[in-house]
Simulated assay, not measured.
Amino acid sequence: MSRSADAFGARLREAVDAQGRIVAGIDPHAALLQAWSLPDTPQGLAAFSRTALDAVAGEVCAIKPQSAFYERHGAAGVAVLEELLAAARARGVLTILDVKRGDIGSTMAAYAEAHLRPGAPLEADAITVSPYLGAGSTDPAVQLALEHGKGVFLLALTSNPDGPQVQHALTRDDTPVAREIARHAEDLGSGVPGEWGSVGLVVGATVGDAYRRLGLDRAAPWAPLLAPGFGAQGAGPAQMSEVFGDNAGHVLVSLSRGLLSAGPDPAALTARARQLSAQYR
């Protein structure tokens, strides 16, 4: 199946080819705001977000704001997130909004409308979703995303200690749940050899051999892989091949503390982004 040039998977692959595979996690938690000498207020969020975007634009393939750190400040914090997403869009920086939405039917569709409909106040290029109400529960978000050239990343193998209780469990036909999610993502994303699909997976860089042992590499060979766990959480360049094997080229290296700790000086942030991009290229 041929993919449209404006499909999210194609645009993401183009960004990776041009700027490298670093995804800058924009996570303004209280400790980081304090380290940047900013108040833990909507005004502090706004200053943090502007500085981070200005410093990494053109140096990373995408930014990944964590919605929770904005939502905790109520309407004023969400307004800052709205401004960040709009500013990134105006500068041509891809946005992956980390919201981990998970629901069914019309509720899942409403979450999708909030983030994937063109013109929505909180419009992003892609969002993270949780498929653990059943892989098909995410379909309303996927359908809207594909309709508008957007992307979706399904949580598959997360790095939290309790994740394997569900993700490694076997379905009635003895298929690991995470592999079934990967297969569903590949079917919906319509990736073809040499071209990335628009439905990706979230796979932690600290999951050891589980990605290959459970067969996710074979179930979704063309899905982009959003991989947290690099940097402060312990994974490094060696895990690119150790964890992801032949699919290492599809990995998006998500870094937050490992990048943002270089702030608040914009020049230092830009230099760190360039260093990390070269390190993982």
Rank of each mutant, 00 (worst) to 15 (best):
D125F: 03
D125M: 07
A126R: 06
I127P: 08
T128R: 04
T128H: 05
T128A: 06
V129Q: 07
S130W: 09
S130R: 12
S130V: 04
S130M: 07
Y132H: 10
Y132Q: 07
L133F: 13
G134A: 06
G134R: 09
G134I: 04
A135D: 03
G136P: 00
T138E: 02
T138K: 00
T138V: 15
D139F: 11
P140M: 03
P140F: 07
P140Q: 09
A141V: 10
A141K: 10
V142N: 03
V142A: 11
L144H: 04
L144Y: 05
A145P: 14
A145M: 11
L146A: 13
E147P: 00
H148Q: 12
G149A: 12
G149V: 09
G149S: 13
K150N: 01
K150E: 08
G151M: 00
V152A: 06
L154D: 01
L155H: 07
A156N: 15
T158K: 05
N160M: 05
P161K: 04
P161L: 07
P161E: 14
G163Y: 07
G163D: 04
P164M: 06
Q165M: 13
Q165E: 15
Q165G: 14
Q165F: 14
V166I: 15
H168I: 01
L170I: 10
L170N: 06
L170H: 09
L170P: 03
L170C: 10
T171H: 13
D173N: 14
D173H: 15
D174E: 15
T175S: 14
T175L: 14
T175Q: 15
A178Y: 07
R179L: 04
R179P: 12
E180C: 10
R183K: 14
H184W: 13
H184V: 07
A185L: 08
E186H: 06
E186I: 11
D187V: 13
D187Q: 14
G189P: 01
G189Y: 03
G189C: 06
S190Q: 15
G191D: 10
G191F: 02
G191W: 11
V192H: 13
G194F: 11
G197P: 14
G197Q: 12
S198I: 02
S198G: 12
V199Y: 02
G200H: 05
V203N: 10
V203L: 11
G204E: 04
G204N: 03
A205V: 15
V207M: 08
G208Q: 04
G208V: 02
A210E: 03
Y211E: 06
Y211P: 01
R212D: 07
R212L: 09
